[in-house]
Design a protein around this nucleic acid. Structure first.
Lengths: 239, 239
DNA sequence: TAGTGGTCTAGACCACTTT
DNA sequence: AAGTGGTCTAGACCACTAT
């Protein structure tokens, strides 16, 4: 294809990613078969296969033997499975329910703008909610989204916000979260958090500061969660 | 090789792992070349390659172009890079120093025995230490190790314990940690922790509960750390 | 120069899904 | 029966390392 840009299979991979960014192939779409892709890219099937191997490993594509290869979708299971790391004492993932406290749009505060890479004073959508497991509050969180991408979201009634927002982002706004970076700290519950979570003032809470990005590297959500960790914990596997 | 045991390359992979467990190839050793392995396993080079690909992805092997493939070692950088997830405000990994408070052997308490999969009352080595960054205490932790594997460790003077213990485990005791599971919670500092970390009583701390295992699945270290997170945080990348 | 891993190709056969 | 991804093989050439 082109010299000097690294191995062929990586060039193929980048062209596939390009098509995903440009929405030539959208979440849920079936890709052309591997022989067809090989022909259209002008490389051998083995080279296409290697490129797709990496994209599957990165959760961008899903292979289905006998059927074909599709672009990953944020169905609720996937969202929870890949991005929700709180588990209970025996390692089971809970299925939390959400209660929206507030949802509206306003101008970004300075910290919000810098974190999201927006100009100061840009419009943002802000959602405050509590997530509970078995009627027991687990965490309180604030989400800040760029208004440019999510303007219409602020108009939605709180009841219309689903529990797994990434599915909504994808289906209603064409925004696919594919990666997130989390920073985790321990903090003390303030009065509001203590009330919402039904714990004593200054109870230690786990703070999860998440920045979610799309394929092209743009930050699309800043989420600051504060969690009780008496019945749940954050699970990490190190290899 | 054998039918019904899944793909050939996975059988090859398992035989390589078997050789690692049996210490036919030890950390730092060079493996036979891929054509040689293919011949000895009776498969094609491509099949060996695929097996090694997975083992490299799991950090068990390291390929070096032009030289060969070696078994991964726990050199200090690798230990820190793979298993130490605390970073400072700008995302840099600190290089902590350790001060050992106590190191000795005794019988396991019940929680320790169950966590490590040992019979009740089995001998364990216990290490208490504080780790600091730039003379500022970052965390206090207790490590519990099976006495059967680490008996001689209790005799070492505290000054002889290096900062990155996994290197010591590997070089002196033939124990290679290759995986760890962490459970993270927020807790309040007790009097001892507050003193050691120079924080107020009941300051929120990040508790990291880590169980480290070897290739054959045996638990070889239980580590309970409590960390200040005012200047550092735990970093996770979600994909 | 010889040996190693890294890439790329080509083709065969299998397992699975759909028509 | 046809098409898809999954596996396995075989061989060519390249980039890098050692001697």
């Amino acid at each position: 294809m082109r010299p000097g840009l690294g191995p062929l299979y990586r060039q193929v991979k980048q062209r596939v990613i390009r098509n995903l960014i440009d929405e030539v192939w959208k979440p849920g779409d079936m890709l052309p078969s591997e022989p067809r892709l090989a022909e259209s890219f002008g490389v051998s099937p083995g080279t296409v296969r290697r490129a797709l191997d990496e994209l599957v490993a990165e959760n961008l594509l899903v292979r289905q033997q006998g059927k074909g290869t599709v672009v990953s979708r944020h169905d609720p299971e996937r969202s929870l499975f890949h991005f929700f790391r709180l588990v209970d004492a025996v390692g089971e993932r809970p299925t939390p329910s959400s209660r929206v406290l507030a949802c509206g749009s306003r101008r970004a505060e300075r910290a919000e703008a810098t974190r999201l890479g927006l100009p100061t004073g840009a419009a943002v959508v802000v959602i405050d909610r509590v997530r509970s497991v078995a009627a027991r509050p687990l965490l309180v969180e604030r989400l800040v989204l760029p208004g440019r991408l999510f303007g219409a979201l602020a108009e939605l009634a709180p009841e219309q916000l689903p529990n797994t927002l990434y599915t909504l982002y994808e289906e209603r706004f064409g925004v696919t979260v594919y990666r997130a970076a989390e920073r985790i700290r321990a903090v003390a519950a303030d009065a509001r958090e203590a009330g919402l979570l039904a714990v004593a003032l200054a109870t230690p809470l786990l703070e999860i500061d998440r920045l979610a990005t799309t394929l092209d590297g743009a930050a699309v959500e800043w989420r600051l969660s504060r969690c009780r960790t008496d019945a749940h914990h954050y699970a990490v596997e190190l290899v």
